[in-house]
Amino acid sequence: MRRGTLVVCQIGLFVGLFVLWHVLTATEILPKFFFGEPLVVLMRVRDWFVSGKIYPHLGVTLIETILAFLIGTALGLVFGLWLALSDFAAKLLNPYITALNSMPRVILAPIFAVWFGLDIKSKVMLGITLVFFIVFFSVYNGVREVSPTILANARMLGANGRQLLRHVYLPSATAWVFSSLHASVGMAFVGAVVGEYLGSARGVGYLILQAEGVFDINTVFAGVLVLTACALVLDYAVTLAERRLLRWRPGSVSSNAS
């Protein structure tokens, strides 16, 4: 199928779902009180952007997300490389990593709120704990699967330990980082919004919490819609970066356009 046709169909599906939602709620098959009204939701989103009321909230949420994403990815990359290359460190930390990873980390949000206060620091910390493990595991496994032939060849060409890290392990790990970044962007958002939801004075999560407090279901949906759109934009930014940095990979772009 041609790319243009596909995009038209994707937009068509989106509009169709909205129309279905509208019809079901307008006819009260689904009660408006619980399921909202799509037209009101869209009006709410429009009002937010026209009045400018959303910008400070959206700004805070995006800053939290992007900071959590960047710091979490960098830490995941460094620790992934370190543990993959140091057998002792890997064996020493293995049970701790497994434990931390299987722990439901969202539960840390209230603790971070106590430690770091109710401003953005606690949300960024929560996002980092979510992003870190995704990147960490993909780098860790990726580095251990670097082709032994490529490694042996680089050594025969005279690469020392530092050069192997810089010219073989790092580029190889980058490919694995990117494979996990799409999932990480989503997790960074989860960290930010859940953090805001549990205690904050600003952010889209805060807006949603306020609206829920007065059973304003339309505003809740409007918040969700804005967040989803932002997540799509960030995901696209990752795809663009991937396209630039992984030009060497055969078919890397099309196969990862999830």
Partner: peptide, 11 residues
């Protein structure tokens, strides 16, 4: 050393 399998750095 010339290897049997692919040894070039793909990046």
């Amino acid at each position: 050393y010339l290897f049997q399998s692919e040894a070039l750095m793909p990046w």
